[in-house]
Structure formats: structure tokens, C-alpha cells
Amino acid sequence: MPLRDLIDRLLGRQQASATTAKHRLQLVLAHDRSDLNPELMEQMRREILEVVNRYVELDLDGGAVSLETEERTTALVANLPIRRVRDGAPMPASEASSSEIKPVQEAPVS
């Protein structure tokens, strides 16, 4: 290991390259395995939010839909904070798919 890297490591400024490799692999494999491109992810996220939004009022800024991978199974994880439950019947699909749901830059992967 070059001296500079060694000093960085000793000072905790740089992480071991094996650790970096592992994290990078975990990220790239979550996407490889799901076979979903970012565009489809975004479309799916919007549609999920639309459906849920018909039944409960969501805190749309706090919500996140992401892919998580563990033990070769990839899970779609949705974390949707509920502001309040809508009274009575669910909103019709047409009304719920309102402009409330904003696109996000990129679906986060953890």
C-alpha cells in the first residue's frame, strides 16, 4: 500500500478498498437483480402512491419507495407516512391521481 494511502487509513480518512468494493457491489446488484430501470421505478412509485393516496392522506414529501436486497431476494420497500385516514369511501381513481404526486429525481436505493 502506498504510504499516502496508509496514512489516510490510519487517520480514518479513507476506508479500506474492500469495504468500498462491498458497498458498491451491493448497490449495483440491487439494480441488476430487480431488472428495473430508473424510469420504470419512478412510474411504479407514482402509481403506488396514487393508489394508497385514495385511501389515506399521505405525507408525500416524507414518502420513499426503494429496492433493498438481502440474501439474493430483492424487496420493494415503501415507507409512506400517513397524515390522516380519509373518511368514508376511497377517493375515485381519477381524483386521487392529482398533481399532488411530484416526481422525484431518482428512486433511492438502500
Partner: peptide, 18 residues
């Protein structure tokens, strides 16, 4: 290299590939 963590460890690989 594995001992100095400059190469993916055995459990790193087996965990990832399961």
C-alpha cells in the same frame, strides 16, 4: 490482501452471492 482488507473478504462474497 484479504488480511489488510484490500481484497473482498470470503464472507463478503458469500454474503453477497448467498
Amino acid at each position: 490482501m484479504m488480511a489488510s482488507q484490500e481484497m473482498l473478504g470470503v464472507t463478503d462474497v458469500t454474503d453477497i452471492l448467498a
